[in-house]
């Protein structure tokens, strides 16, 4: 997933597109280190695991029971796709950008694999 996300960041850098994460890792220190090491440049809310001592709440409100769970939301804030992956994810984003009248950038090469 990370290489694909990095390729989305690269491909859609100059158009109105953003990746936003909700991270449920238990240890905030180590996840800070990981986003730096793995060059995950997009912003994430820190949800933490559910239970006492963490903010929790977001994943619970969104009724997430499996990770990753993903949504694609259009420029008006409307949920348009749920759990689309791979090529279908690119196509979903392309379609929503086209609806805004934005010229859709061509695909970029995905870099090598790492964990996740």
């Amino acid at each position: 997933m990370y290489p694909h996300e990095r390729s989305l960041v690269k491909r859609f850098a100059d158009v109105p597109f953003e990746i936003l994460g909700v991270n449920s890792d238990p240890d905030r220190e180590s996840i800070r280190r990981i986003v730096k090491e793995k060059n995950l440049t997009w912003r994430s809310w820190w949800n933490g695991p559910e239970g006492p001592g963490t903010p929790g709440g977001i994943a619970e409100q969104w009724n997430v029971s499996g990770w990753p769970t993903t949504y694609v939301i259009d420029h008006k804030g409307v949920i348009r796709f749920k759990n689309v992956r791979g090529e279908q994810l690119d196509q979903a984003i392309e379609r929503l950008l086209a609806e805004m009248g934005v010229e859709v950038p061509p695909p970029v090469e995905e870099e090598g694999h790492d964990a996740r």
């Binding site: 936003l20 994460g21 909700v22 994430s44 977001i58 993903t70 939301i73 259009d74």
Partner: peptide, 30 residues
């Protein structure tokens, strides 16, 4: 629905701050 909370480094932000953009929202864990 609105999402509001702290990012990994402690600053607060909202989903609606990004209105006007296409959003890929990813519930994730490493």
């Amino acid at each position: 629905p609105e999402i509001e909370g702290e990012d990994l480094f402690g600053s607060t932000f909202k989903l609606s701050d990004y209105r006007g953009k296409v959003i890929f929202l990813d519930f994730w864990g490493d």
